[in-house]
Amino acid sequence: MRLTFDVNGVGQQADDVWPGESLLYVLRERMGLPGTKNACEQGECGSCSVYLDGTLVCACLVAAPQAQGRAVRTVEGLATDSAGGLDHIQQAFVETGAVQCGFCTPGLIMATDDLLANTPTPSDAEIREALAGNLCRCTGYEKILDAVRLAASRRTEVTP
């Protein structure tokens, strides 16, 4: 089948898509956007989190045809508005040491973006609840909490 959809603000088309493919496969193998990660491919780890029409989803659980005519935003499209190359969440993850192997990081950054859009100054309990669907095997999450707190504080400074 032919798939036509919007990825990070740009119209895209993929041909010869096998309808059993996931949105994750299409992004990674057909769109050249491997930043969205493939850790479990059954919706348990959150590493493939992307926005689909503004809603955070696991791209591995979205069948490619379900993306037809819709808008997808991936980690590669997160920092397009900022001059420095990183948005404030990405910057916070680097600064706090929240990145080790980094495989969970794009998904966690997308989930954090979604959290802070809805809850600009989350409590620790709210951060834990919001990120409970994102597995990290390296960090023990402590520095991820640091990163989200830092990103929230900066976001608050910028947009009071």
Binding site: P34, G85, Q90
Partner: peptide, 21 residues
């Protein structure tokens, strides 16, 4: 000291073994 590979890892540019093509 911050990780030099931290930046490509947060942008999605870091090439893991499953990303090669």
């Amino acid at each position: 000291t911050l990780l030099p590979d931290g930046i490509p890892k947060v942008t999605g540019d870091f090439a893991y073994s499953s990303d090669l093509w």
